[in-house]
Simulated assay, not measured.
Amino acid sequence: MEAYLLDWVNLLLRWTHVIVAIAWIGSSFYFVWLDNSLRAPVSEELKKMGVGGELWAVHGGGFYNPQKYLGAPPKLPEDLHWFYWESYSTWLSGFGLFSVLYLFNPKVFLIDPSVANISPAVAVIAALAFLAVGWLVYDSLCRLLQNREKLLAVLVVLYVVAASWAACHLFAGRAAFLIIGAMIATIMSANVFFWIIPGQRKVVAAMKAGQPVDPIHGKRGKQRSVHNTYFTLPVLFAMLSNHYNMTYSHPHNWLVLVMIMVAGVLVRQFFILRHKGVVNFAYPAVAIAILAGVAAWIAPASPAKTDAQAAKGVEFGQVQQIVQARCVQCHSAQPTLMPSAPKGLMYDQPDAIKASAQLIYQQVVVQKAMPLGNLTHMTDEERSVIGKWFEAGAK
């Protein structure tokens, strides 16, 4: 029952996380598009009111006319809408999901002894440190270089590259990708919490007090918002990567992560420029080239032709012994490393192994993604035995 309830917690947290992330990213993308699509107003009345840009749009059967003021509007409305709960809810639900899946079971999900033989406590502390230190380093760079945007961008990229390398040399590949994504997502949400919203509150407070509005708050908020929009696609890849073990299981997985994130930034840059009326297909072309290059680079080698006689010599009993020694700790009715069998796959019985022969072959032999983090120390020889058995017909 405990495992069943944990599955429900996992499901509801993941569902919530996706819902609020869609709301946050959607509103973020919309405002970046809106800000880059505004046109100077023609109406003298709007100019006198301080409107610096406006846009006419049609959607859902209605016409909309959003306007942006250069500074503060002449009169502050009572029903001013704030955009921040989408960000906070995304981070809180994501951290809850990360805790349930990874921090509460670090031996299975965070640690890969072949990468770094660390204790569960060290793994948890290090994972949390990546989130905190990531924000502190990024924020310090922004404070020091707030007027040198190009140098700041270069240093932030280099820091993310260094963090990716460090994570992939400390944690299991799957966890490393997710931790880098969580680190960047923490930076994004912290930008909202510590800079964007406080700056907006100071502007509102100054207006209510009849004091002049300091434009620095808008400048800083705009800077952090722009950073967030470039972070978005890399974060989305990192969060989705745990479903695609061909990326995080590569020996140079940190470089795979960095290159795919760079492709995401290039795609985002293309759309940002397009919002401004500049169409430069070089950005998506380079992104596609990077992704194609990565796909070719990490493609699994075609299995060598199996000697027919050797394949026939592999008995199912040998495969069953390997599965009993390396797999049933997770995939059984009473697993010892998991609260319940992942995806309900149980290999305690011979028929269950035979029924999942193709899946086992793909995960164990071709992609070498299982056992997870090779926690049970399956050898290459054992993988070869399973491969020969499958290629001979899995009988």
Rank of each mutant, 00 (worst) to 15 (best):
A209N: 13
Y244R: 06
L266R: 07
T232G: 08
T232Q: 13
A238D: 11
Y248G: 14
I260C: 00
R326A: 12
A209V: 11
G317W: 04
V279S: 15
A238Y: 09
M239P: 06
G264I: 06
Q309N: 11
Q223C: 03
V278Y: 14
W297Q: 09
M239K: 11
V258D: 06
A304E: 14
I216L: 13
P284K: 01
K276E: 10
T306Y: 00
V262A: 12
I322V: 09
L257G: 04
V258W: 04
L240I: 08
L273W: 03
V262I: 13
Y244H: 09
G221S: 09
F231A: 14
D214H: 08
V278L: 15
G264M: 07
N253Q: 13
A285K: 04
N242R: 06
Q309H: 13
I288C: 07
H252T: 09
Q211G: 09
S249F: 15
D214Y: 07
P212Y: 07
N280R: 15
A282R: 11
G277V: 03
F231T: 11
Q269C: 05
A299P: 08
Q269F: 02
M246S: 14
L266C: 07
F316V: 03
K219G: 04
V256D: 02
L233R: 08
C327R: 11
R274F: 00
V323F: 02
E315I: 04
A287D: 01
T306A: 10
R220I: 12
V314F: 04
L266M: 10
H227F: 14
R224Y: 14
F281Y: 15
V262Q: 03
W254C: 03
C330F: 14
S249C: 15
S302R: 09
V265C: 11
F271C: 00
A287P: 01
L257A: 12
V323T: 04
H250T: 08
A285D: 03
K276F: 02
V258H: 03
Y283C: 02
V286M: 05
Y248V: 15
L273T: 00
N242Y: 10
V258L: 04
G264T: 06
